[in-house]
């Protein structure tokens, strides 16, 4: 196994906090982020999620150097973002779903020329990267159309090209799929994963769309009321929280009444039913044994509850 990358080259956050407003002379004091800590190593795909007002965007803005924290420290690629913003900017890429980095009056190609000059990407490298990114994102044909004439999906692909033009080591994505249709979302998620796998780019993603987390991330940090309430893998989020399993069952013939010890019947319609089991109270195996003994089962499946439901449950928790 190769040597693990140094932690300082990833994202290191220690008791980072941000308070808006002084609280003096009647001005509101808002603790947007209240002392969060986490480490993200290079190459990780981390989803940073939480309900509205949880402190996600504020955290991203501190990690990219736009906002100065009121407490704590952080380093990104070994740099203090708010002290070394311009140096850091050369090494990270950002994509804000609600804010465009393209100039609407220009074509993407003109914007890329300007961005490449800011990032110090030589003309030959720029053209080569535009060609490869255009192929990867199927965006080459969009380069010479004015941005204002692009659809949202097309524009987001062009935004991603702009974010990746300088080959960033970390890509910060803030609600990147907002407003996209299902096909565009799926495609966009696949692209992010591909960029991570092929180029080793670290992905730091915030989103309200649980599918973004499922498809893109291998780690989830949940923030609520400015504090971290969960930090583990997506799999662990499913397994360790809500000890609840859903059993889907199809019987060989219609069953008039359905009653299984240790399980609650959620739905029952003749030969098809869905049951819920709290595995802390009843082992799933005993429930399945009882079901198979009592009824003529034709097909059976055991599933975790949808991630969306788990996340909603997490959001309701106070830190």
């Amino acid at each position: 196994m190769g040597e693990r990358p140094r932690l300082s080259q990833g994202i290191v956050v220690d008791e980072l906090g941000k308070t808006f407003g002084s609280g003096r002379r009647g001005s509101a004091r808002v603790d947007a982020v209240a002392g969060i800590s986490f480490h993200i190593e290079p190459g990780e795909r981390c989803a940073f999620i939480g309900p509205n007002g949880a402190g996600k965007s504020t955290s991203i803005k501190m990690l990219t150097g736009i906002l100065r924290p009121t407490s704590g420290t952080a380093t990104v690629l070994g740099l203090v973002p708010w002290e070394q913003r311009l140096t850091l900017a050369r090494r990270i890429g950002t994509l804000f779903g609600q804010r465009s980095q393209l100039w609407f009056q220009l074509t993407p190609r003109r914007t890329y020329a300007l961005l490449a000059s800011m990032y110090g990407v030589p003309g030959s490298d720029r053209d080569a990267r535009l060609a490869s990114l255009g192929e990867l994102l199927d965006a080459t044909h969009l380069y010479d159309r004015p941005v204002r004439t692009l659809s949202l999906g097309e524009r987001m692909r062009c935004e991603l090209v702009a974010s990746l033009l300088h080959e960033p080591e970390i890509l910060f994505l803030d609600e990147p799929t907002i407003g996209l249709d299902l096909v565009a979302k799926t495609r966009f998620r696949d692209l992010i994963v591909r960029i991570n796998e092929e180029q080793g780019t670290t992905i730091f993603l915030t989103s309200h769309d649980v599918s973004d987390i499922e498809r893109v991330a291998n780690r989830v940090i949940i923030i609520n009321h400015g504090r971290i309430v969960f930090d583990d893998s997506v799999q662990m989020l499913r397994q360790s929280l809500l000890k609840r399993k859903l059993i889907g069952v199809r019987f060989e013939e219609a069953v008039p009444t359905l009653r299984v010890s240790g399980a609650a019947v959620l739905t029952h319609d003749g030969a098809v039913a869905q049951l819920e089991v709290n595995t802390e109270e009843s082992p799933i195996r005993s429930v399945l044994d009882a079901l198979l003994e009592q009824y003529p089962v034709a097909d059976i499946s055991v599933e975790d509850p949808p991630l969306e439901e788990i996340v909603s449950h997490m959001y309701e928790r106070r830190p």
Partner: peptide, 11 residues
Amino acid sequence: GEVAVAMLRPA
């Protein structure tokens, strides 16, 4: 807050 996007560029 639009200026935040411009602040993310190394210029």
